[in-house]
């Protein structure tokens, strides 16, 4: 068996999972399982939220160690799911290492839903969360408009490469302004509070928070605390954005109605 390719495959699998938002122990487990297929004495994997180290050693071979720095992450559960499948098939000998490597490079760039569909998703979240929180038809209509402005804001901040904190704050700011504006002049009488709550849901770090808890309770404290920090910072950014939007609106109109 080609040890070098096996290590490469294992690290690639780990990298995809880590970037896509899998828990640390799942990434380590996957790399471990794949490395163990080589049947060497030592197979170790260390994973942090920012990097991966994997090592394979045996008296018969020269040690192979791969370090990989991981930057940029975006949640993509489908990739986690697909890599999980590949690693399962590889370990059950239903796939060769070469096949697995090719398959993984495909998965790395796979996208299920296009950008338009994602925009619709953002709008849908705003509308249906408003419904879920007890909004009526007029509220949902207003939420749809707010959702569209949120999707636009997200795209704009991605295009001008705004950093995460500013992007979240900017999106939240726009949500607050758009909703309050509509409540004041276009569709009076809407419940602007639940519309804002519904619309900030795509920004609220629910996924990061969930992963952070599971990491921490699994004993991966370094990544756990890093992710909790990330969730707190995002929440603060959203709060700052909404607060700034509401404050500005109040200052402009000289009074808020909620």
């Amino acid at each position: 068996m080609n040890d070098k390719l096996l290590v490469e495959t294992a690290v690639l699998a780990g990298e995809i999972m880590l970037v896509s938002g899998a828990e640390i122990y799942r990434v380590e487990n996957t790399i471990d399982h794949i490395l163990r297929k080589a049947g060497r004495n030592t197979a170790e994997a260390i994973v942090f939220s920012t990097g991966i180290f994997a090592s394979l050693n045996d008296p018969a071979i020269e040690a192979i160690t791969v370090a990989r720095r991981v930057t940029g992450r975006s949640t993509n559960l489908n990739r986690v799911y697909l890599v999980n499948d590949v690693s399962r098939m590889l370990c059950e000998d239903r796939m060769t290492v070469e096949e697995a490597y090719v398959r993984l490079t495909d998965i790395r760039d796979s996208v299920q839903y296009g950008r338009r569909l994602k925009d619709i998703g953002v709008m849908g979240v705003a509308v249906f969360f408003t419904l879920l929180l007890g909004g009526g038809a007029r509220d949902c209509l207003a939420a749809a408009v707010t959702g569209i402005s949120l999707a636009t804001a997200m795209e704009v901040s991605a295009r001008i490469r705004l950093n995460d904190f500013c992007a979240n704050a900017f999106c939240a700011f726009l949500i607050a302004i758009a909703t309050l504006f509509m409540g004041q002049w276009l569709i009076p009488g809407i419940k602007s509070d639940i519309i804002i709550i519904g619309a900030i849901m795509p920004l609220v770090p629910g996924v990061i928070f969930t992963t952070a808890i599971r990491d921490t309770l699994n004993g991966d404290y370094a990544s756990g605390t890093a992710r909790i920090m990330e969730a707190v910072v995002i929440a603060l950014a959203v709060a700052a954005g909404v607060g700034a939007g509401m404050g500005l609106f109040q200052w402009l109109t000289g009074g808020l109605s909620w």
Partner: peptide, 14 residues
């Protein structure tokens, strides 16, 4: 419907 919309953003397996 809200969770399904979220699934689009999170790229949940179809």
């Amino acid at each position: 419907l809200a969770v399904i919309s979220f699934s689009l953003i999170l790229e949940l397996p179809k």
